[in-house]
Design a protein around this nucleic acid. Structure first.
Length: 400
DNA sequence: ACCCGGGGCGCC
DNA sequence: TGGGCGCCCCGGGT
């Protein structure tokens, strides 16, 4: 960790110099978000305000800087390079302060390990929360992977078991959508089926890996299905595709993608409407096990508030049931866990353990079968699958 | 030596 | 104008 901390310091220092070369001695602080820096951008340089925060202030987040970079390429080419430098500075600063220096603060002097606190009821949905530090948001950066600070002791390995597409599977069961159920009952490829629906092309074409558009379409399909499940708007889908996948589509295209899925999975769409209407009637949503989430704002006259409450209600039945499922499986696992296996942590739909190398196959089979037990819900008919990864460090896990 | 909100951002 | 979290930085306050 110390070596990476030093490397980050050096890279940050170089970036600071390169930024100063362009903007002079304007203080940028630890992550380019001092008010002096924002004033410099919008007052001194007179750059356009291309995005505002929720409170209608000039934004200065990643999306803003990508927009400013593109704008500068057209209008102020001498400044375009600034924004890539800032984004790089931010990225390394975040990794360094949160996952290197931040984690080092929590190393126990006796055990030399980090012992985070998990809270069983930390989230309204029934998920765990975690702090001091939060290891549930450890980054997975390709360049500087801070997950590699979590390592197995000598002669042991880490194993991770991860529920596959758990929320989509649960949504299939809850909604009884015939197309989604068919996918999971007959082992079809969700993203291929979704690609076919989103782009209105034959399933054969959607599954053809040789097709030059295969990867692009699949990326769009995944994001669209995700947005569709939780009531995302076309505008947000378009923005997400651009920022996180580098895919440029128009808002009308994004809207059409979502519409195509609503038609293809029309029973799920009907279930969503019904879920929201029930929540409006009850003022709460609940999982199959009765875990409730109260959503009083669902009757608000304020469209933003009521809309937010509707999406919370929609999300709760799925995210909450997934949390219930994970907790039930933790109970089964602990009952029969051999003493030489150490449970380390959970990240919402996955569990991580430390296992002696010569016991990996045996323990993996034991935990996997405990996780794949269907939940005790009458008529539950969707196959639950846990995928297994093994590695010496958390940043280098290989699927088995 | 705290506390706070706002902005931003990491993960599932 | 998906949901669910916690942490860092900043500026302002006690």
């Amino acid at each position: 960790m110390q070596k990476k901390a030093t490397e980050c310091e050096e890279r940050l220092s170089k970036l600071r110099d390169e930024i100063a070369f362009i903007i002079g001695d304007v203080p940028i602080g630890a992550n380019c978000s001092t008010s002096a820096f924002k004033k410099y951008l919008y007052n001194d340089l007179q750059l356009p305000v291309l995005k505002t925060t929720a409170k209608f202030q000039e934004a200065a987040d990643e999306e803003t800087f990508v927009l400013l970079r593109d704008w500068c390429n057209e209008n102020r080419p001498e400044l375009a390079n600034l924004f890539d430098l800032i984004l790089e500075f931010r990225r390394i600063g975040k990794l360094s302060s949160t996952y290197i220096d931040g984690y080092l603060k929590h190393v126990n002097a006796v055990t030399k390990r980090i012992h985070p606190d998990f809270f069983q009821l930390g989230a309204e949905s029934g998920r765990f929360s975690c702090r001091h530090p939060n290891v549930q948001n450890n980054s997975n950066d390709k360049d500087i992977n801070t997950r590699n600070f979590i390592i197995a002791p000598e002669n042991m390995s880490l194993i991770e078991l991860d529920y596959s597409q758990i929320e989509a599977r649960l949504a299939a069961f809850l909604s009884r959508d015939e197309h989604l159920l068919d996918i999971y009952k007959t082992g079809k490829d969700l993203h291929a089926m979704t690609t076919s629906a989103v782009f209105q092309i034959p399933i054969e074409e959607a599954m053809d890996r040789q097709n030059p558009q295969y990867k692009h379409r699949r990326t769009v399909a995944k994001a669209t299905f995700f947005g569709f499940m939780y009531g995302m708007y076309g505008k947000t889908l378009q923005r997400n595709l651009k920022v996180s996948a580098g895919v440029n589509v128009t808002i009308d295209e994004a809207k059409m993608f979502l519409e195509n899925l609503k038609k293809s999975y029309s029973t799920l769409t009907a279930w969503q409407k019904n879920t929201i209407s029930n929540a409006r009637k009850n003022i709460y949503a609940e999982t199959e096990f009765g875990r409730r989430r109260y959503v009083p704002n669902i009757r608000s006259d304020n469209f933003m508030k009521s809309g937010g409450a509707e999406r919370s209600a929609l999300n709760h039945g799925v995210q909450g049931l997934a949390a219930d499922l994970l907790k039930l499986s933790m109970g089964r696992i602990i009952e029969n866990l051999p003493p030489y296996v150490k449970p380390l942590f959970t990240v919402h739909d996955s569990l991580v353990f430390e296992v002696p190398d010569h016991k990996i196959a045996e323990v993996t089979a034991l935990i996997k079968s405990a996780m794949e037990v269907p939940p005790p819900i009458p008529g539950f008919d969707v196959r639950i699958i846990a995928e297994v990864s093994v590695g010496k460090s958390y940043g280098k896990m290989e699927e088995q």
